[in-house]
């Protein structure tokens, strides 16, 4: 007993140390962005890796709050995130459940057809024609529907459902429940960790959507937040060193860039703590027995 508890303690202390170090390393880039969003650029130049500002400066945030585009962007992003996630989870559940039945006839053909879409895509122009002919051009639907169901996550969801012991389902079948009832009463409650995962995945995907908005909308008041952020922020990796660059207001100051990143990612970061309880071991006991 004594030996085990020593090994246990050793395990724990190693585990805590390693994870803590890794977590701190992971905190660094975020802290970096956050710190320099409240530090003056001059100070950044002198100490480019110093994470504690001498003097807090919220000027950048003040400027951001006055940018009208960012607020319409926020509204659009929240709409496409909420609607997109709801649609995605619904479609994924009703599609993944039948596909999780290994003996369902035609299942393999459908799975192959779905897998195929991970590799071959028509590209910009045919997709644009499609959106226009479905009358989705210049609507927020054009940012919700394409991508509402993706092969990758669907296959993962299917494999999660397939892992649920079939004995649970069978007992319900004997009671005469049909598949719709089984999905609602047994599969969904048992899939909470998986559903929570895909809520996070799809919410983040939708939150970060920007490319579809370029192609499928022509009005700036339909732009999602990330499209605006990209246009304001991404110039080191990419943009406009136009001929007149110094004169362009398009080139945003370093501090403002950092502030915009914080301003645009903070809300989506908050989704994770809310979903966390579904990842806790043991939370499933109740639903299995109930």
């Amino acid at each position: 007993m004594g030996i085990r508890s020593f090994k246990d303690k050793l395990f724990d202390s190693l585990n805590y140390t390693v994870i803590t170090i890794f977590a701190l390393v992971c905190l660094f880039p975020f802290l970096y962005v956050a710190a320099f969003s409240v530090t003056s650029y001059t100070e950044y130049l002198q100490h480019p890796l110093k994470l504690i500002p001498y003097k807090l400066e919220f000027g950048a945030y003040k400027q951001i709050f006055e940018m009208p585009v960012l607020w319409t962007g926020y509204r659009n992003t929240i709409i496409i995130t909420v609607a997109g996630v709801a649609l995605n989870i619904f479609l994924m559940l009703i599609t993944a459940y039948p596909l999780s039945k290994p003996d369902l006839k035609g299942r393999n053909v459908i799975l192959l057809m779905i897998t195929f879409t991970m590799f071959f895509n028509g590209g910009l122009i045919p997709n644009f024609y499609l959106i226009r002919s479905l009358d989705l051009y210049n609507t927020l639907w054009s940012l919700i529907l394409p991508g509402a169901l993706g092969a990758y996550n669907l296959i993962l969801m299917k494999s999660f459902i397939q892992n649920i012991p079939s004995s649970l389902e069978e007992s319900a079948q004997i009671d005469g429940a049909n598949e719709v009832t089984i999905l609602a009463r047994i599969i969904i409650p048992l899939s909470k960790p998986a559903i929570a995962t895909f809520v996070i995945f799809h919410a983040v995907t939708q939150w970060n959507t920007f490319f579809n908005a370029i192609i499928y909308t022509s009005k700036r008041d339909l732009w999602p937040l990330m499209l605006i952020v990209r246009d304001l922020v991404v110039d080191g990796g990419g943009v406009a060193r136009d001929v007149m660059d110094a004169a362009n207001s398009g080139v945003t100051e370093f501090t403002i860039k950092m502030a915009i990143i914080i301003f645009s990612t903070l809300p989506i970061l908050l989704i994770f703590p809310f979903m966390q309880k579904y990842f806790m071991k043991g939370m499933l006991i109740g639903s299995i027995k109930g």
Binding site: L124, I125, I214, V234, A240, G250
Partner: peptide, 18 residues
């Protein structure tokens, strides 16, 4: 009509093909 500067060429290609 003003697509974002970073992806102007993408949208322009699509518009020209439309």
């Amino acid at each position: 009509e003003a697509p974002p500067i970073n992806n102007y060429v993408d949208k322009l290609q699509v518009v020209m093909a439309s």
